[in-house]
Amino acid sequence: MIRTLLITGGAGFIGSNFVHHWCETYPDDRVVVLDALTYAGNRKTLAKLENSNNFRFVQGNICDRSLVDSLFREEKIDTVAHFAAESHVDRSILGPDAFIQTNVVGSFTLLESFRYFWLEQGKPDTYRFLHVSTDEVYGSLELDDPAFCENTPYAPNSPYSASKAGSDHLARAYYHTYGLPTIITNCSNNYGPYHFPEKLIPLMCINILLGKPLPVYGDGQNIRDWLYVGDHCQALDTVLHKGKPGETYNIGGNNEVKNLDLVYKLCELMDELAPDLPVKPAKELITFVKDRPGHDRRYAIDATKIKTELGWTPQETVDGGLRRTITWYLNNREWWQPLLSKDYQAYYDQVYGVKS
């Protein structure tokens, strides 16, 4: 079937990668991107699509009910891929208000608007609302704990993860109460092109290029499961086509790595791939900083369900994905250099306590 998608947060990191994936894979589908273009949204990321007849960009907030209502009716949206979110734990610690507003109130607004439009259209069984969430809603694991599965109890430990847990619960409730065809996905840490510099992997790559300290929280032994964003987009594609309304699917990369080991790996690859680094070997830039409050020790995803029920598995290894990611940042300085604004520098200094 030909779909008309509303992709919220489509100028952000995962959202923009998904927009490119969908437009390239399904050129006959109509794609409408709604993005507020906050600090982490970048319209330049979508520049190649702007002249397409099947693409429309709308700058606006998902909390704006009248705007959302009008988009559903004007475009006759049948599929929502909801990425729009405040997503950085450090920023949620400094200022949780925006996280509650966007992640909870914004998700509620989308669900309500979609519900009314779906009812007006006669509740078509082909409609879908894909709610893209995070593994952080499950809390923290000990080293010998089993990985998160879809039945793991929620135990969010930061304002960010609590706000995402709230939006997950709303998406679930709208299926069970109203029959709205919602699907929830919870993914592990993504990495790849178009990632805002505040996040770990782009931060380290850019700081190495600039010869600046590489801040590592605490002892660096926190463990994350790393998922290449291209694999994530393919998984979401699979969920939209094969997933069942009312279900949750965990999406992981099968790549558990300690933060410090990841930074060392990035240093090695940058030494290899980047000529004329200001400091070489890059590992000399590693600087341990005060740990983040309430820092979760380990995340790990059990992706058995999506593999056995829908046939999806990640294709990219962490070594291959990091090499592709670094190469992208080396070749796209014009994308990330303008993002290093005075506001970003001030935020960086406040969070890490070291001059950027």
Rank of each mutant, 00 (worst) to 15 (best):
L141V: 00
T25I: 06
R56M: 04
V263L: 08
T327C: 13
A147I: 02
D276P: 07
Y228M: 03
I223G: 03
K342Y: 00
W22K: 14
V257L: 14
V351W: 04
P338V: 00
G311W: 13
S107A: 10
C187I: 04
A173Y: 12
W118D: 08
Q121T: 00
P275H: 12
D291Y: 13
N190I: 11
L330Y: 04
L209G: 07
V32P: 11
P293R: 13
N51H: 06
Y264A: 00
E272P: 09
P156E: 07
P202A: 02
E150P: 06
D271K: 12
N157E: 11
D343L: 12
F18K: 10
V229M: 04
E75Y: 15
N51Q: 10
R115F: 00
R333I: 04
T8Y: 07
N17P: 05
P278R: 12
A282S: 10
Y138S: 06
L210Y: 06
K342A: 04
F18Q: 08
L203R: 15
A98C: 08
N222A: 03
P213W: 06
Q315H: 10
A300T: 02
D237F: 05
A173H: 13
L240Q: 02
V80D: 02
K258V: 06
L130Y: 04
D276Q: 14
R56W: 01
N259D: 01
S87H: 14
N250L: 09
D97S: 13
A155L: 12
M270T: 06
L209A: 06
Y127Q: 01
L71P: 05
A47F: 09
G230N: 08
A47G: 00
F99N: 13
T45S: 06
L210C: 03
P293V: 05
I77Y: 15
L49Q: 08
A84P: 08
V279F: 06
T102V: 11
T126F: 14
N151E: 08
G253S: 10
I301A: 00
T327G: 09
F99E: 05
L269S: 05
Y160M: 11
E120H: 13
H176P: 11
A155R: 15
H82M: 08
K280F: 05
A40Y: 11
R292W: 00
R297A: 08
